[in-house]
């Protein structure tokens, strides 16, 4: 959705490069297992797709002659370190196994939960949030939210399916969107363009 928006409008107005780069980092850390494990064709295709789209978005925002001029660097002020450092620390302490790949995987789970924050902060500062941006954020929130339903199903049907790190992170990630979803639903009902209160 985001790539379509950027390509169609030749603009990344209202999009946080910080959030996009954090997602690229999340996918790198999580999908290292592309090199040493195979689950299914679907799984592999989606992992490669996520990596490719994340990097393509970052490339457009940083290097495309036209698109990069629409990036509002002054407003996108969230500091990487405030998200990366606590997640790295937590991953070192709270993990299933203390190995490089497992710690990086756990780090990616924690980081994904909070990676939307720069985007949410940027949107709060944006007067006119365009529909594609609002829809993109809503879809991103719904994506992990729908996982919760799947986790409940798997918990009920699969033995040994206990995933506290993933579950708590996923619920926290979805909760971060609660406020956004509230205003998104209000504006959608009133058929108005999304506006977040300052």
């Amino acid at each position: 959705v985001l790539l379509l928006k950027i390509r169609a409008t030749r603009s990344c107005r209202g999009i946080s490069l910080k959030t996009q780069e954090l997602y690229a980092l999340v996918f790198i850390c999580r999908y290292l297992d592309l090199f040493y494990s195979y689950i299914s064709l679907y799984n592999t295709v989606m992992k490669v797709t996520y990596l490719a789209t994340a990097f393509s978005i970052v490339r457009y925002m940083r290097f495309d002659k036209v698109v990069r001029q629409t990036y509002d660097k002054e407003q996108d002020t969230f500091r990487y370190i405030f998200l990366i450092a606590p997640c790295a620390l937590l991953a070192l302490v709270l993990n299933h196994r203390f190995s490089p790949t497992e710690v990086l995987w756990t780090f990616s789970i924690y980081l994904e939960a909070v990676a939307i924050l720069p985007q949410l902060v940027l949107m709060q500062r944006t007067q006119n949030i365009d529909n594609l941006t609002a829809n993109y954020v809503a879809l991103l929130g719904a994506y992990r939210g729908f996982y919760i339903l799947n986790w409940i199903y798997r918990f009920a049907t699969e033995k040994h399916y206990r995933q506290w790190i993933v579950w708590i992170s996923g619920v926290a990630q979805t909760a971060l969107y609660a406020d956004f979803f509230y205003y998104y639903a209000l504006c959608w009902k009133a058929n108005q363009r999304l506006q977040l209160p300052a």
Partner: peptide, 10 residues
């Protein structure tokens, strides 16, 4: 491993 089950998720 306890974490193996989640590795089929994206």
């Amino acid at each position: 491993s306890r974490s193996a089950a989640a590795k089929d998720e994206l």
